[in-house]
Design a protein around this nucleic acid. Structure first.
Lengths: 226, 226
DNA sequence: CGCATCGTTGACATAACTCAACGGCTGTGG
DNA sequence: CCACAGCCGTTGAGTTATGTCAACGATGCG
């Protein structure tokens, strides 16, 4: 059952071994299906083993806001721990697999392993930082800067997983990118076209190639996030 | 040294007693001074005892994004736990006092008290949710909705502290409100004027009175957050 | 192979920004 | 305690980035 792909990128091997003890179950998700919905009882957090998953809030009026596109090694469900009730939906962007880490197992294990809870505290802090950077992007950047930063951020994370940092597939639609970045799908589409015209990227449907990394960094404000 | 005002609102009395053991030190901050700066070593988190504090990110270009206005009972510094280095600035909006909770004390105590770490996990989850709601506000709402939601959120939190939910003082400038909401100070000023003209609020400088709570809720999309 | 979804592009509308001028607090130092 | 300076807030006029509506083309799923 143990598998390094379940583990948050950047963990020491020591911590990996501890976390592996937590993972007793995996869940397969087909494209478009939900790992959990808003309101579900939250009794575990999930590490993506393969695939990709979006998380989205939904308010009383049905308005949706995507808060993240998660890749292998990243964790989902930490926003549900406040009242052990999910506050967002988690939906697979492609066929995916996640590892389940039950809270009760975590609590039991961390009693004897202080480093586990410290590690988990760091991961929750990371999630807070991720969200804060998104706030900064939405609050302070113009559309072209947001999209450039988004592409660089994806590139960075895929690269850390051993994939190409310049050639990858966007697993989400223009509408989903727009929702995430606080833009309309038309604006996203136009920006992709413009970036391509200006030689920054090449794009064909969801296949993207970053041609001028530096120019994208300059555009985004050199803040590629993580 | 023990004081209930240091404690996150909504905690059980039992947990309060535990947390009180953590608080060995308090810090007084005069208006405009910083509790910590970006890059500072993070070895504690802080609970506001009195006053109010803003937290803000700052990117390489000096661009600032305010991510929160914190009130008594609320916690600061959870975003710095990733690498034990602050990722934001925390600046007092008025003369304030905070309680210091050292990480090493927390780790020591929580070893014998599983409920402490569970409690802390919940508080970090709450911070993630807070940030997610801000993302939703910035990504999905129009300016008038953002400001209405902001006022209702403040009202809600002040009310939980025992203050009036309809009459209060804005401790932050128009510019700070605008920065937080992804708007310019002029837009904020115009919206206040318009809300007043329409009978939703009365405002004189930083003194505000909410006259039509329901209309504000309808405007904001009934999402007053927390 | 056909239909539904997704993506592109254009024309137009508008919410929010920018720049500018001015008035009123507030707090400080003489 | 008063006068002044600097900041803060308001308001207006004009601009612009981004949204809206609409038509069409491309993909890929069933």
């Amino acid at each position: 059952m143990l598998n390094e792909l379940c583990l948050p990128v950047g963990m020491s091997h020591n911590d990996v071994i501890k976390l592996d003890e937590l993972i007793k179950e995996r869940i397969r998700l087909s494209k478009g299906s939900a790992l959990f919905h808003l309101g579900d009882h939250a009794e575990a957090i999930y590490a993506i083993r393969s695939g990709s998953i979006k998380t989205q809030l939904e308010d009383a009026t049905g308005q949706v806001q995507i808060t993240g596109f998660l890749l292998p090694g990243e964790l989902i469900g930490m926003d549900g721990l406040l009242n052990y009730e999910q506050t967002s939906h988690a939906i697979a962007l492609e066929d995916s697999e996640v590892c389940v880490m039950r809270l009760e197992d975590m609590d039991r294990l961390s009693m004897h392993m202080p480093s586990l809870q410290q590690q988990f505290r760091r991961l929750m802090s990371k999630e807070i930082n991720r969200s804060h950077r998104l706030v900064m992007s939405l609050g302070s950047l113009r559309s072209e800067q947001r999209l450039a930063a988004f592409l660089l951020n994806l590139s960075h994370r895929l690269s850390a997983l051993g994939y190409s940092s310049t050639d990858f597939i966007l697993r989400m639609s223009r509408e989903e990118i727009g929702n995430y970045l606080g833009l309309t799908l038309e604006t996203v589409s136009r920006l992709f076209s413009r970036f391509a015209r200006e030689g920054l990227i090449r794009i064909q449907q969801r296949e993207i190639k970053l041609l001028d990394y530096q120019a994208l960094q300059a555009l985004s404000g050199s803040d590629c996030g993580d």
